[in-house]
Every structure is written in structure tokens, then in C-alpha cells.
Design a binder for these strands. Structure first.
Lengths: 338, 338
DNA sequence: TAAACTTGTGCAATCGATTGCGAGTTGGCG
DNA sequence: CGCCAACTCGCAATCGATTGCACAAGTTTA
């Protein structure tokens, strides 16, 4: 049923030893085989429909040419571009990606990583980092090659590729300041994600510098609904802020929904500004002002770091920060005077 | 550097033969080993940090417990839900997914499939079907296990899981008919994709039944820009339709952009209705009326068919059609009278 | 008490490709 | 003519786990 043509078969058909076939078919070692022989072997291999068995090869050479990519949830729109970036880079270098979602559950993360480790991936790109998880540190102790993307993982000295959250937050707040906003709210993600924690820390710092009042409102997770209900709670009481800066576009989207549901207008009554610039953020109603994080480049860079680590053995810089840029759309406007 | 603990190591440490360790650690064969021994072996294995080498296992048992998922482009928003559906089902059954994008290029498709075949995936789920590609038929001849998702691939008798395009189109057109539309435009995708071809065929049929004039406008590909420029061309000349039905939400989005750019209003001047109900279609401006295709279920069902094929060897029904449902939002309204 | 089972474990072949080592051939050069 | 280098290519071990078969010890049955 399956393709069963083996090196041995090709060897027999070509009248040579399988070792010769192996060398003839591998670009690296092709040069030690007679040119005529190579041509003959290649021809025979094709006519027999030989396709090399990387499983067997992996066992022998101790490398599978696959990397495990661990993300929280593919349907979170920031991840597809990242995975694409990873995949594009890796494909060019002969690697294939084994994908695993974890749904933000530490158990599923552990399970996913175990499953990938059993399959002997050469390395990991992990985007599920959280400060309190134990898995990543243990991997470090075992000497497993890992690059973190987007989120850090506590004190583990793995390289981390991320957008410049601090600069992004500065751009966002300065934009609001120019528009006259003096009292804003920050929707903060969970404390144990480095990204959301840094963003929260940074926005209060920048607001302090500019003389803006900033209320940090914690949100239990990064889903749209959580953003909606958090803003619902704000708007169900007397309130006095004029803008909302959300740690994530999905939370910003939740804010937009809540504002609309309360019969208020954005940006008329409240301006909203997101973070990440997820795909289609421009199409929202109103188009979402957001800080564009180069998600595909984060993926590609993470892949690049991993590949150099795998091929040259040398470790990479501790953290790579990619530049971000504020994209102004319709969800931000002059502060309302109420 | 890597985990090098092998069965042999565990065996030595536990004072038994590696065959016994193998049996003790495999739930299937655990029963033939003495209970005491199992416990001892498990303990030793854990303390040594043994993680089973599926590469070696695969070679021996001729099965890798991985499936290749081939899609055009992960950043097309209809695919992440589908891949999630696939992954969820497969993970529950011990399989892992190897992901590959092809960017609608037949060469890349061929390359991706070859790469996955070399890694000896147990089967494929392919969403890049096109009538003129040669790869899929060849796979069939080789007896490779494949399930097609979303798009068919010519006359190949592989099972196909898809949404009910015909019923969906009927619902869409009837909705427009009720709103008074009598002249509409269909933005049609490429001819060689079964999905878009069927949708085009069906919309003209239904329009014929209802006495609606339907102009089919071909669009070269399924990207947003292509939709925009197609509608640009329509609106740059005299026109008389009152609604646009697009083969895909991305094309519909392109239409929305063009309408806005021409200073027209949707649905005031032109109603727009999409297909697939991609994530966040509700957030567009205006919220996009669309036919909801259960993408995650398509993925899950495709995975289910593949797994039963792999485990029971028996082939599945030729085509599984999942029900779809029109979701009415703000982009459709009464026909304008011009 | 011997024969017939059960139970638990070891032995060794096997999956398919890679690669260090060595042998055979050819050709060049002194 | 002889020696050595350069090419080619075959041999066999190896990667780590699985599994049919055999064998030993203990248990039941006739």
C-alpha cells in the first residue's frame, strides 16, 4: 500500500551496493561517486519511484530536520502570521514544522512538548511562555534547543524574539496625549505573561512622564469576551476616562463592542487603541488604531536563531527586539470634553 | 546535549532486558509483564528521564503517527479554524500534524508533499485541491491515504469534506430576493477550484429560478485586492446591480473597500454578502452578511475520516457535506431604487 | 508423578539509511 | 616495470525500539 521502494531495491536494480546509492542520491556525497553511475542510479531511482525514508535517516544521523512550534491557539489571529514566518524560513533550510496548540493550559503544553520531544524534533519555537510554567526551565536543563517567540518565560536564558513593547507603548500614549487625552484606561492581560506585564508597566511609566492619569484594569485572559466584560464593568459605573489602551487587539475589540453596546461612540465618546495590529484590524468598525508588531518577522527571526543554533551550535543573543510602529486609524480622536 | 537515555539504559538500570522495558512501557503489552517489574521499570525510566524515541519506533512499526496537512496559506483566515479542528481531533488519537503551506503554487505543493512523504506521514489532509494539479491523482495511484478538505481535486476518488455550497448559495440568494434585489453580481473565484466553481454554478441556477439577473464576474485569485479591483472595474462604468455576492469573504471585503472608495454606501447603495463567515466578519464595517461554513467541523471530520481509514483500512464515503447557515448582518439591506 | 499449561523474560532479527574503513582498479610518473 | 595516488565502490556496524519465538520456572491437571 505504501511506498516500499528502498535503497536496497534501487541498488539491486542499478547493479550496485546500497551504500553507493545512498551516496549518489545525497548532494553532499555525490562527488565521490562516478558521474556515470550517479546518472544511472538517479534514473533507476526515479523510474522506481524511490522516495527517501527520513525516518530511517533520522535514526542514523540523530537529526530529524523538524522543529516543534508550540503556540497557545492558532485561531488567535496574531499566530498565523508568526507561524507563516517561521515556516517560510525553515522550509528554505530543509526543516518542516510540527505544530501544537496548548490553549494556554500548562498541562496541554507539557503534553505537547513531550509529544514533540518523542518525535525527536531538532528544536523548539515556543510562544506559550509564562513565568510560572516549569516546562521550559526543565528543557533548558536538558540542553534542548529552544527559541522563545513573543513571550518570555521567566528567567530562562533562552533567546527571546519580540516586538519593542516599550517603544510601542510610548508611541501609543504620545498619540493619545497629542489628541488631548489626560485620563486613560489600560486593559492589562494576565500578570504571568511577560508581554502583557511589560506593556502595563510601560504605559504607567510613560503616562507618568506625560502627566496622564492611567488606570490599569486587569483582564483575566486575552479573549474578546473578557475585554468586553471588563469594559462593561467600567461603563456601568460613573467613569471619567476618555480613551482605552488595550494590551491586545482582541481586548480592544472587546472594548469596541462594549462601547457600542452602551450606546456610546468610538472615538466620539471614547478612543480605543490596540496592540499588535492583527490582520483585518483595519476593517473593524471603526478601523482600529493599533501598534503594528511585525509578527511574521518575529517568526522568521525566531526560526533564524534556532537554525543557527542547530547548525553552528552557538547560542544567540539573549533577546532580539524588533521595531514597531503606531498605525493610526479611526478608533482614536480628540478627547471628548465631559 | 540531547536526551540520550535509551531503552537499553533503562533496562540495565532496572536489571532486565530491553525487550522487557519496551513491553512494560507500552500500555498495549504491559499486561504480559509482571506487575512488580512494571512498577520498577516505570520508576527507573522516570528517574532517568527516559523519553521514548518515536523515530526508532516508526522505523520498526512502519507508522509515524503524524499526518501531513497541506493548505494554501495559513494567513487566509479560513484555515486556522480548520487546522485547529484537525489538530484537536488528531491529538486525541495520538497523531501530530506536520504543516505545510503552498501559496497556491503547484510546484510548492509538490515540494511540500514530497517533503512530508519523505518523513513518512501516515496520511494527508489536503486543502489545496485544484482540478488541474497532477500531484493528488498520482498519490492515489500510489495508494497513499488522503482526505480532501474544502476543495475537491478533479476526478480523484478521495473522500472530500466540504460545506454545503449549494444550500448556502440558495440561502444567500433567497435572502437578497426577499430584500427586493433583482440584479446582482457574483464575484467568482478561479475556475479550477471546485468550491468557487460550484458556487458560481449554483448562484446562476438559483437566480434563474427566482427570476434574478446575475452577472458572474471572474476574479483571478482569492485575495482582497483582487476583489477590490474587480469591483473597481464594475463601478468605474455605468452599473445597475444592487447587490454583490462574493465567492469568499475576502473578496467581499475587497468589494466593501471598493464601494467605500467610490463614495457609495453599503448597504444603502449596494448590498454585499460573503461566503465562509471568516472569523471577525462580524466586526467589519458594516458587519458582513455571510454564509457560515463550519470550518472547524470540516477539519475535525476530515481528520476523523483519515483516522478511520488509517486504523480500519476501509475507505470512507466519497463526499461529506456539512450544513451551512446564512448569518445576516449589516452589509445587506433593501434594494436601492436607482 | 509426569504431562500440559501459564507466566515472565530473554534472544535476536528487523525496520532503512548512513558512513568509516578498506580493497580493487586505473593511470601517471620516475 | 614498479610504486603510489586518486577514484570508485562494497562491507558491515550502527541508530533505538519492537516482536515472534524460545525457554525457564512455577502451577494445574490427569
Amino acid at each position: 500500500m505504501r511506498n516500499e521502494v528502498t535503497l536496497e531495491d534501487v541498488a539491486k536494480a542499478a547493479g550496485v551496493h546500497k551504500a553507493t546509492v545512498s551516496r549518489a542520491l545525497n548532494p553532499e556525497t555525490q562527488s565521490v561517486v562516478n558521474e556515470q553511475t550517479v546518472r544511472r542510479i538517479v534514473r533507476v531511482a526515479e523510474s522506481l519511484g524511490y522516495v527517501r525514508n527520513l525516518t530511517a535517516r533520522s535514526l542514523r544521523v540523530q537529526s530529524t530536520m523538524t522543529v516543534g512550534v508550540v503556540i497557545p491557539d492558532l485561531t488567535n489571529p496574531i499566530f498565523p502570521p508568526m507561524v507563516r514566518g517561521i515556516e517560510n524560513y525553515l522550509a528554505k533550510h530543509g526543516y518542516t514544522v510540527l505544530l501544537a496548540d496548548t490553549d494556554e493550559s500548562e498541562d496541554e503544553e507539557k503534553e505537547a512538548i513531550r509529544s514533540l520531544a518523542e518525535r525527536r524534533v531538532d528544536g523548539f519555537i515556543v510562544a506559550t511562555g509564562a513565568d510560572n510554567h516549569e516546562t521550559i526551565p526543565r528543557m533548558f536543563d536538558q540542553g534542548i534547543a529552544v527559541v522563545l517567540a513573543n513571550r518570555g518565560a521567566g528567567a530562562v536564558p533562552y533567546p527571546l524574539v519580540t516586538g519593542d513593547d516599550e517603544d510601542g507603548m510610548r508611541q501609543a500614549v504620545e498619540h493619545l496625549h497629542r489628541l488631548g487625552h489626560r485620563h486613560i484606561v489600560h486593559l492589562a492581560g494576565p500578570e504571568n505573561f511577560s508581554t502583557t506585564r511589560i506593556r502595563a508597566r510601560e504605559i504607567v511609566r510613560v503616562c507618568g512622564d506625560l502627566g496622564i492619569t492611567c488606570d490599569v484594569v486587569p483582564v483575566e485572559n486575552l479573549r474578546v469576551d473578557a475585554g468586553t466584560s471588563a469594559v462593561d464593568r467600567l461603563l456601568d459605573q460613573p467613569w471619567s476616562f476618555t480613551a482605552i489602551q488595550a494590551s491586545t487587539d482582541l481586548l480592544a475589540l472587546g472594548a469596541l463592542r462594549s462601547i457600542r453596546a452602551h450606546g456610546l461612540s468610538c472615538p466620539g465618546d471614547i478612543s480605543v487603541i490596540g496592540f499588535n495590529d492583527m490582520p483585518f484590524a483595519a476593517e473593524f468598525s471603526p478601523g482600529l488604531t493599533s501598534v503594528k508588531v511585525p509578527l511574521d518577522e518575529i517568526g522568521a527571526e525566531a526560526a533564524r536563531l534556532l537554525v543557527t543554533r542547530l547548525q553552528e551550535g552557538k547560542n544567540s543573543p539573549r533577546v532580539v527586539t524588533l521595531p514597531v510602529r503606531l498605525i493610526v486609524r479611526q478608533s482614536t480622536g480628540p478627547a471628548s470634553s465631559r
